[in-house]
């Protein structure tokens, strides 16, 4: 019970569900997201949905390393910042469209992640965590001091001249559509991963690193590939954030807090599950937005306090997160009433 995380409990039910049904469900959800994203007119709701989609993408990407791989990565802000800065710098210095800059940022982040993954192979648990924290600090310090390229602590602004070719839109819905696309990409990748060899290798690594390591090269490769994919997705999110907010600086895209948020949302939603991080993101973004709106900020820290408590409780008592709880409730209901089938 203790060492089994939720994914091993969910895996069989996923397999039990026919592939066709899962795909159909997936298509329906994605379709609904796109329709909502393009039809929504209230700008505030569009913004809220954008924040949720971005947060879900980040949490989902983090989950690949932290949830499936069980590695305590606390430095994903570095990749977020690298994505944001790479596309913005390429646009400002070489007039390269952020669409391509975004890919360049993702590639750069993936390469760095592979490098870090390779040199930290021997490090476990907290040591790995501290290395990733220190790595992010180094990136932040470099960005802060490389004034001519990054604008130092003053940061960079992205001009707002609506032109779809330059990833700049006159309406918010277009940004939202990009965010939905990113989220769909992230979660489709995790869903596929969970069902393929990569996912099983990661799972094995997490459950028993020593045994998996004795399998050798494959496990190492799985670890590096997952780290690279995760970093690339987070970097894409970084560019999206930069284009949407129109300004970036070391505090807004490279702070420790961002790394923590990704891990927090992923864990509260359900570590190592496919859609858990999305649930975590929905819960985090809506609750903070609602509390801010209700209390006009009087009790802003209360939100963090509640969230921290919830986080601890989830870690101690319900490591399946919100998703795990939902499944448990459903299972219990099913058992009691003896009907319905369990599929996620």
């Amino acid at each position: 019970m203790n060492t089994n995380t939720i994914s091993t409990r969910i895996q069989p039910s996923l397999q039990a569900a026919s592939l066709g049904r899962t795909v159909t469900l997936w298509v329906i959800i994605v379709g609904a997201l796109y329709i909502t994203a393009s039809r929504l007119t209230d700008e505030h709701l569009v913004d809220l949905m954008f924040q949720i989609m971005l947060a879900a993408s980040l949490a989902g990407a983090w989950n690949i390393v932290g949830g499936f791989g069980g590695q305590i990565a606390l430095g994903h802000a570095a990749f977020f910042g690298i994505g944001a800065y790479t596309s913005t710098i390429l646009f400002q210095h070489y007039h390269l469209t952020p669409w391509i800059g975004m890919l360049a940022g993702a590639l750069f982040a993936a390469l760095l992640a592979t490098l870090i993954g390779a040199v930290t192979l021997r490090l476990r648990g907290p040591f790995f965590a501290m290395t990733t924290v220190a790595f992010t600090e180094l990136v932040r310090i470099i960005v802060k001091n490389w004034d001519s390229l990054t604008g130092g602590t003053r940061g960079l602004w992205i001009p707002w001249e609506p032109n779809p070719w330059n990833f700049s839109f006159s309406d918010r819905n277009s940004y939202l559509l990009v965010a939905v696309t990113l989220a769909v990409l992230v979660f489709s990748t995790t869903a596929i991963m969970a069902k393929t060899k990569l996912g099983f290798l990661l799972n094995a690594l997490r459950e028993d690193a020593d045994a998996a390591r004795s399998v050798g090269v494959k496990a190492t490769r799985a670890r590096l590939i997952s780290f690279a994919i995760s970093a690339a997705f987070v970097a894409l999110g970084g560019t999206l954030y930069a284009q949407y907010s129109l300004s970036i600086d070391p505090t807004s895209v490279l702070s420790f807090d961002i790394s923590i948020q990704m891990a927090l949302m992923s864990a509260v939603g359900g570590l190592g599950t496919v859609i858990g991080p999305a649930l975590g993101a929905i819960a985090a973004v809506t609750s903070s937005s609602l509390l801010r709106g209700w209390f006009g900020g009087e009790l802003g820290a209360l939100h963090l306090l509640l969230y921290g408590v919830l986080f601890i409780l989830v870690m101690l008592y319900a490591r399946g997160g919100l998703l795990g709880m939902a499944i448990n409730v459903k299972k219990r209901l099913t058992r009691r009433f003896g009907q319905g089938q369990s599929d996620v």
Binding site: E43, Q51, S245, G296, G300
Partner: peptide, 15 residues
């Protein structure tokens, strides 16, 4: 409205 961070500021301004 409360804007403790740049990110929150974007959301609140939009709201």
């Amino acid at each position: 409205a409360d804007a403790p961070t740049p990110n929150a500021a974007v959301s609140e301004a939009t709201r």
